[in-house]
């Protein structure tokens, strides 16, 4: 078998250092998260703000996932997913030249509106898809041309409503598969981000359980507390594995969109359900301090809970996966463990 996740050690170290240094130097946490342009400039300098550009470093989703994880592990306030694997990839589909602006992306409805667009109010450009007749158009448009109504998700991340007069837009035609893959990429990016933050959350629970003393010993010595953490760790392991499997499928590029959708649906289902157990158990381990704004735990748990509902909610993914299974003609095991490279 060949090993996956063979993310280059040096690269992984570099990702960890960049965000680790940023986190050490940054000010106090904020209820409302603002895009950190200084951190962004560092990413641009290092050439990792647009990691998977085709004419760039040759990085694949494996490296991109490493970056997303590292950012999520430190609650870094930058739209790394949106700029690279979403907008960047979309712009490539329409042969739009790369630039050093900060981008996000969204799908507009036929009236030219979209809700809860990640980072829209704080980036430079939005790469938009919109339906025209039976087809789709794509354009990269300065945010200044949109009417923007700022909003926030439960984690305080910018999720803004945007609208524009579609008649003023000139777009390139793209096939509907681009729209489908965009949605799957977004869903997978959120799975990777969740996995990264969940890992940090489990680490925090171990740290807390070994340092907090009650009844004369670290609370981690109590079997009941050990059980909470052991179960959280277990959920983390399967969340990581199913997310990595989907990343691998996309990086290898061999499975086609149906195969990719299956892997992404599995990843989102497993990771979404894992998030429920991990967040619940880890808060329980932390006691009252974990419920405060002062403690860092919420900086990781809140985004996880927000991401879980983006690019499809947990129930939508469970439902979609069920549909895919029922629509197939294969037995359940053969569907999940194909022998034809699907």
């Amino acid at each position: 078998m060949s090993e996956f996740g063979a993310l280059d050690q040096d690269l992984q170290q570099m990702f960890g250092d960049v965000f680790g240094d940023w986190r050490e130097a940054r000010g106090p946490a904020a209820l409302e998260i603002e895009l950190d342009r200084a951190l962004w400039a560092t990413l641009v300098d290092l050439g990792i703000s647009r990691l998977t550009a085709v004419d760039g470093s040759g990085a694949t989703w494996i490296e991109a996932a490493g970056l997303l994880r590292a950012a999520a592990r430190t609650a870094a306030a930058v739209p790394v997913a949106e700029n690279d694997v979403l907008s960047g990839w979309l712009r490539e589909q329409a042969a739009i030249a790369d630039d050093d602006l900060i981008h996000s992306a969204c799908i507009l409805d036929p009236s030219g509106s979209a809700r809860a667009v990640p980072w829209a109010s704080q980036v430079d450009n939005l790469t938009v898809l919109w339906p025209v007749g039976d087809g789709w158009k794509l354009a990269d448009v300065p945010v200044s041309q949109f009417h923007v109504t700022p909003g926030r998700d439960l984690a305080g991340q910018p999720r803004d409503a945007v609208s524009i007069d579609l008649a003023t837009l000139d777009g390139a035609d793209v096939p509907s598969d681009v729209v489908r893959e965009y949605r799957l990429r977004g869903a997978l990016a959120r799975s990777v981000q969740m996995a990264g933050a969940l890992e940090r959350i489990v680490e925090l629970s171990v740290e807390h359980a070994t340092s907090r003393v009650q009844f004369g010993r670290p609370i981690g010595k109590f079997q009941a507390v050990q059980n909470l953490i052991a179960d959280a760790a277990g959920e983390l392991v399967i969340a990581n594995a199913s997310t990595d499997a989907a990343v691998l499928a996309l990086a290898a590029g061999e499975v086609g969109l149906d195969g990719l959708e299956l892997r992404v649906a599995i990843a989102r289902s497993v990771t979404g359900h894992a998030a429920a157990v991990i967040v619940r158990n880890v808060h329980q381990v932390h006691g009252a301090i974990g419920t405060t704004f002062e403690h860092q735990l919420h900086e990781f748990t809140k985004p996880v809970l927000a991401w879980r509902s983006e690019f499809g909610s947990l129930r939508e993914w469970d439902t979609r996966l069920t549909e895919l299974m029922v629509a197939s003609e294969l037995d359940l095991w053969a569907f999940g463990v194909p022998t034809d490279g699907r």
Binding site: M1, V237, I238, A239, A241, S242, D244, A245, A265, I266, S269, V270, H273, R315, W317, D318, T319, R320, L321, T322, E323, L324, M325, V326, D331, L332, G336, V337
Partner: peptide
């Protein structure tokens, strides 16, 4: 799954959920 495909059971998202979990365990086990 077969009963759902035959229409003897309504599609239930729990089916997808457990299938996903088994697949996650499969990845780790491998």
């Amino acid at each position: 799954l077969l009963a759902t495909r035959r229409g003897d059971l309504a599609p239930d998202p729990e089916l997808g959920r457990y299938f996903a979990r088994i697949m996650g365990l499969h990845q780790v086990s491998v």
